[in-house]
Nucleic acid binder design. Structure first.
Lengths: 123, 123
DNA sequence: CGGCATCCCCTTGGATACTG
DNA sequence: CAGTATCCAAGGGGATGCCG
């Protein structure tokens, strides 16, 4: 076994964490925060296609996991900034490897899909 | 922008790939196949908690993406082996970084969750 | 053994409206 | 601005049964 925990076991702690991390929106948010704090509606606008409900939920989970901080400024109207914690920053860098891999190998994957679909249609 | 494509845009190819990769089961399957080919029911038994329907669907997606090969041996009853392609192996290694990160930082995350929940209950 | 088909539930997430 | 609350539709995924 290569891991301290058996990641194939149900209910192993690593899986819990993996569950949280294997989230498209979480990865995108983490990535978007790498350049510094961002306000709620700014995130909402930048990350196209996310609803405010899902953004809110995802941010809350990330905050609970200690990956993101939520800072409220008592302006009128109120301003809320989200920023990476050191932990979140470290994860963001790890996750960026995945995003970069996706980008570099996208062509190969798209080609494989086309070939697969063509072979299917032929039958 | 750090990426060739704007990953925050809806409908960008990188997001399509990321969508597929941000899948707990896919990551676990990729990881499980790193030591060599595995048969369907063997995978099903090893990866606790996955249903055969979801396993089947996930494997089909991975095959379509060119990450996994499916080989049928005409025994009776039939034997089917799944194995990583070079592309799949490369992704598996990248994904392993995520899994390892999860394992190494799990304690910090669990502690953050406990602190968050405690602060909530107190109010 | 390795699936696919069917049924069915129940969660996820979108749309909308409202509040501090 | 930054959410929460409510409603509702779609589909993801479990359970079961059947087949090559």
């Amino acid at each position: 076994m290569r891991y301290a925990y058996n990641v194939y076991e149900d209910r192993c702690p690593t899986r819990m964490v993996l569950d949280r991390l294997a989230d498209k929106w979480a990865l995108l948010i983490l990535d978007r925060l790498e350049d510094g704090p961002v306000r709620f509606n700014h995130l909402r606008r930048d990350i196209k296609g996310i609803s405010q409900k899902v953004l809110s939920q995802t941010l809350k989970k990330l905050e609970r996991d200690g990956l993101v901080t939520r800072t409220v400024y008592p302006t009128v109207p109120v301003t809320v900034e989200y920023a990476l914690t050191p932990l979140g920053r470290a994860l963001g860098e790890t996750a960026a490897a995945l995003t970069h891999w996706a980008e570099h190998n996208m062509d190969a994957i798209l080609a494989a899909q086309a070939a697969y679909d063509a072979a299917l249609a032929e039958r």
